[in-house]
Write a protein that binds this DNA or RNA. Structure first.
Lengths: 120, 120
DNA sequence: ACCTATTTGTCCGTATGTATG
DNA sequence: CCATACATACGGACAAATAGG
């Protein structure tokens, strides 16, 4: 799994790392159930502090794509959900959001993981 | 707003602080739109590090309960309930979708109601 | 327009705790 | 018991956004 970070970028290091791991997964460089390098280890290879890697990992965990366990390490979450169920959940979310008065753009922003800046 | 923490508890300090703020809001000790004490300030009064308070605040922000802005501070949002529920639903949807292997663009399409409109 | 203080955001380093194997 | 690896907490440093003089 090769990830590169740019210290001069305005994008936070932990976001770059998280994006790199996501990319490695979607591109198949890392498979489901695979173990990711220990935070300390990946940090060393990127010349980045362990905590920064842990923050990236924590974000991915919150997104549900990896699992973190003490003493055991980090693994890519095992397997899928059903597309029909996803569509159903999506319709519900949109309905709720519309009731709450959100615009289409705001609803999209709700699930947009591409712009990694905190919503403000 | 009075919060107390127990350093000997197994519950993490930042969880205790987050719980205390939630309680203060639901009990009406803090109103919508009110400003919460600066992390440094609350930390000093609780004898806890600023970063620990910031972690608690960050959790509440992820739940949609508060807003944080540099230079300005932390404020309780207008409609915590609605926003929190929506954010939570969205988070789950994104997590499920990612487990199903959907890309960010595919996830957005799930909730995009702007049919043929151009997305910039 | 400028400067300063405030306050959150990120990153680093260290230390200690806790679950796993 | 021991090594591994994440979890929490502290502290310091600097950056970036905001507000006020």
């Amino acid at each position: 799994m090769l990830i590169r970070v740019d210290g001069s970028s305005t994008v936070p290091l932990y976001e770059q790392i998280a994006a790199g791991v996501r990319r490695a997964i979607t591109e198949g460089a890392v498979s489901r159930g695979d173990r990711l390098p220990a935070a300390k280890e990946l940090g060393a290879s990127l010349d980045v502090n362990m905590h920064t890697v842990l923050k990236a990992y924590g974000q991915l965990r919150d997104e549900g794509i990896i699992e973190m366990r003490r003493g055991r390490g980090v693994t890519v979450v095992d397997q899928p959900a059903d597309h029909a169920l996803l569509a159903e959940s999506a319709r519900k979310l949109v309905a709720d959001a519309r009731r709450a008065g959100l615009t289409a753009e705001e609803i999209i922003r709700l699930v947009d993981v591409r712009d990694q800046k905190r919503r403000e």
